Computed example of a mutant assay.
Amino acid sequence: MPTPKKSTSGSKKPLAYGAVIVVAAGLLGFASYKATAPDSSSANTSTSPAAEVSADPQAGIYPELAKLARRDADDKLAVGRADAPVVLIEYADFKCGYCGKFARDTEPELIKEYVEDGTLRIEWRNFPIFGEESENAARGAWAAGQQDRFWQFHAAAYAEGAKEKGFAKDRVKALAQEAGVKDLARFMKDLDGEAARAAVAKDQEQAYGIGATSTPSFLINGRPIAGAQPKETFTQAIETAAEQAKTTAGAGATEDKAESSEDSAK
């Protein structure tokens, strides 16, 4: 497994989520190492704790991690309804081969099956861990997003062979052009601006804070999943989370109705 280079815009200081999150972070970090090791023939079929999805809808879910979903309707790096019952948060690096595999093979199917029907929202978090070119691509993705072309940039940067060409600034600019970014001068200014650096650093700090040590790492309604797992792993997690959300919403509606009846009886 390639050793991630130290980033200049983020630290590995854990966020203060409480003792239970230390356990979740440990699982995610360990599974992330195993599931993304490029020399392992079983990298995409990891059965580590953070990759397993139990039939118990509460198993492996950490409410504090679920709260990391931003649900901002104006988030340029997200797709899907802000009020979708399930939120998948993806922490990824454009230089990561397994991130590219997920982006090409699995994510489009999840979007078609779950985002388009309103069940799922996907929120991207830039997690550059392989040095300067990772940072360039991350800030480029953010800058493309400011012109509503994040997902087009995402597709171009994760296309077959794109990673091998590197992410020097001229290459990132070419990807922006390929993605249909109209104002390339603004793009380059945004790429090197403080807002881009701050946004990437914020995402990076969050990833380190939950114990992610490599990419891709995911949270699905507070359930950690590490690595480019088979589609079935994500499908089961999404459907379990959606069912749990429906049950919770139903219980809340019943409770509200009961309280309303009590108030009427007074």
Rank of each mutant, 00 (worst) to 15 (best):
C96P: 01
S260N: 07
G10R: 07
V172Y: 06
L184T: 10
P57L: 13
G252L: 11
L88H: 02
G80E: 00
K163N: 14
F153N: 02
S41K: 13
E255W: 14
T106F: 03
A157S: 09
T233A: 11
R197N: 13
A156G: 05
V23D: 08
P216T: 07
K12Y: 14
A168N: 12
S40M: 09
M1S: 15
Y98D: 06
K182G: 03
D148Q: 11
L68K: 00
A207V: 01
V23A: 14
C96F: 02
G145C: 02
A55L: 14
D75L: 06
T254V: 14
G18T: 06
G140W: 00
F187W: 09
S260R: 12
S214M: 05
E116H: 13
A78D: 01
K5E: 12
G209S: 06
T119E: 04
R81D: 13
E107S: 07
T45F: 06
V86I: 05
Y208L: 09
R197V: 08
E113V: 05
E255H: 09
G60Y: 04
T248Q: 14
A241Y: 04
N126S: 15
A157T: 08
E160M: 13
L15M: 10
A196R: 01
A37Y: 08
R121V: 00
T233V: 15
I225L: 05
A228K: 03
Q229N: 12
D93P: 03
G193E: 08
F218N: 00
E64D: 12
V53Q: 15
K173T: 15
E109T: 06
Q236D: 11
S40G: 08
A31M: 09
Q244A: 13
L77F: 03
A199L: 04
L88E: 03
K163D: 14
L15F: 08
A199P: 01
E135P: 03
